[in-house]
Nucleic acid binder design. Structure first.
Lengths: 344, 344
DNA sequence: CTGAAAGCGCTTACAG
DNA sequence: CTGAAAGCGCTTACAG
């Protein structure tokens, strides 16, 4: 590979001048600029990334820390990742994707070695063990997911409280009085997946406020367990007329379960989920849903991260931003046929 | 951050000695080794990745080039990516994930700048425009997917011909004589997605050899188009008793379509697909399938790539390896109820 | 078994 | 407007 020395020689200038033409960090005569640019083309010169990183203390790489946990729904992650990756490239950064189970160690490795200028953390838990490492590293970080303590961090997440309330309100407004919520598996809660209880607690509070019943349950994440779970659930709640799904695997499994039981939606049961529209179209999920906007969250996180990396103003206040959920109507909800309570 | 100079000073040795202790590239006295290791711990020293890359010409990073194309099924990609990422880390490499639409340019960028020691190419097309760039770069590369010309490359793919034959044989052995194959959208073929025609052509040939009818069609990749397509398909082939799905979106959409038409599988229609078991369990796909083994392919590709990077023996012959498909029985196939031809 | 020195390929004050 | 030189933080022949 050609070096900047080769370019300088070919253009008849010094290495520093060649460098300045490349970086544009000082004015150069048109003539010199032209000769250097010609040499760059002739030699097919590309700067050595390691050398540049060493000299500038900037790698132009962002770390993307993802965890694929047993009970969590992997494909949703992909949409966040694509939002992150695409906008990063637009802003001139590459993505170092880290999938190790031990996120703290991975984070320490990539920040201490200065491989990355900043990091995006996904699957953030309430008491995420990566956060102390991130804070100690001095490297800017943006989170997707809300931790218990946001101090010193830029945080982006869907407004799960609002999502929970919206789901309850939507069905309550239609006249439903007995609902069931299926959340992610309980393991996710134990791991500190705050989005589970944020939606759940808000939904329960809203149901209470509106004087209706909401049975909140934790589901499963894979077949055959999730199918059996749903079947059992419907056995246990025969009076329920509305189903809230905060669980993608359950949303995918539900149509067959309903079919096998001869239940039609929305005629016999109103159903509303929480996942992205992209997701619904790819996997033929027929239920109305709260849009989770994963790529939008990923994009927001990276924009803020890059802003912070490049402005270097530590006094700039950190942000915690919640994206408002939007309801996508797919016609799977309707007023209940028979009133849940038979009034005299 | 501490540098190796700080470590050397703290340990009372020269920088070169400290470095040798770290790399283990020459013998050191136990005493010196202990002092250096203590200093490393005390200072929390981690080598600067850029400096090391500059000095060794090795970045310890692999490029992973993925493309998320409109008509292709994104979530399947994720499983390959995880196989790649996990085994890379086991072998001491990080992953630079590149999702740019212009793969050639991206490949040129990351290889010319020496950001990566090798690359894994996914979604490889028959006449993939990234391959000339890869060959010119001199950087080792491993492909997932079979291109028209494999010269100088390590190639890994599922044996799609065998998969097509297996699907046909399975249904033919059960007595089916009129089958329909739903492939990926035709766009994928136009882009050079060889896996589509490899499975399709082999299935057609096998059907011919066995004297049965196979109608080969191209499907859609998303709702609502894929649902309409399947419905129309069943209208057009009322005599078919078996359905072969080489199209994940179609597999996800089919259960509702069958339900709406009052068709039961396998009683009225035998169905066999081609996707990973992981996938079937996550998305509740109820059909028997040919396992696509994505993480296994990803792992194989990285192992070979790292072997090639580290041995540096250009005479080592390149490999083209096909993984044999395996049938996972989910009970969605059975002998046809009524013989397709009513014989006198 | 260890150290002083050169070099990897850039960028960037410092001079002119 | 341009150049010579130092420096980023490592590794690795070369000496001893």
């Amino acid at each position: 590979m050609a070096t900047i020395g080769d370019v300088a020689k070919a253009a008849g200038v010094s290495r520093s001048t060649a460098s300045y033409v490349l970086t544009g960090k000082r004015t150069t005569s048109l003539e010199v600029r032209r000769r250097v640019e010609q040499a760059v083309r002739d030699l097919g010169y590309t700067p050595n990334a390691g050398a540049r990183a060493l000299a500038t203390s900037q790698s132009k790489v962002l770390g993307l820390l993802v965890q694929f946990l047993e009970d969590e729904f992997a494909p949703a992650m992909l949409q966040y990742m694509l939002g992150v990756s695409n906008v990063a490239r637009e802003l001139g950064y590459d993505i170092l994707m880290v999938t190790e189970p031990d996120g703290s160690q991975a984070l320490k490795r990539i920040t201490d070695s200065r491989m990355v200028d900043g990091v995006v953390l996904m699957n953030v838990a309430d008491d995420d063990e990566r956060l102390p490492v991130l804070r100690a590293s001095g490297v800017p970080g943006a989170l997707v997911g809300l931790p218990g303590d946001c101090a010193g961090l830029d945080v982006f997440d869907l407004d799960f409280e609002e999502a929970g309330r919206t789901m309850v309100d939507h069905l309550a407004d239609l006249g439903h009085r007995d609902l069931v919520l299926v959340s992610q598996p309980e393991h996710v809660v134990e791991r500190g997946g705050a989005y589970v209880w944020r939606l759940r607690d808000a939904a329960l509070a809203q149901a209470k406020a509106r004087g209706i019943t909401l049975h909140a349950e934790y589901g499963e994440s894979q077949q055959p367990a999730v199918g059996r779970f749903l079947d059992d659930l419907l056995d246990r709640h025969p009076q329920a007329t509305g189903l809230l799904l905060h669980n993608e695997a359950a949303a995918a499994a539900l149509p067959s379960v309903l079919h096998a039981r001869g239940i039609q939606s929305p005629r016999d049961l109103s159903v509303i989920g929480q996942y992205s529209d992209e997701f619904a179209r790819t996997f033929s999920l027929p239920f109305s849903s709260i849009e989770s906007a994963p790529d939008r969250l990923g994009r927001m996180a990276v924009r803020q991260l890059v802003r912070r990396i490049e402005q270097q103003d530590p006094t700039d206040p950190h942000v915690v931003r919640f994206v408002s959920p939007e309801l996508v109507d797919r016609g799977s909800t309707a007023p209940p046929v028979s009133p849940p309570d038979v009034r005299p």
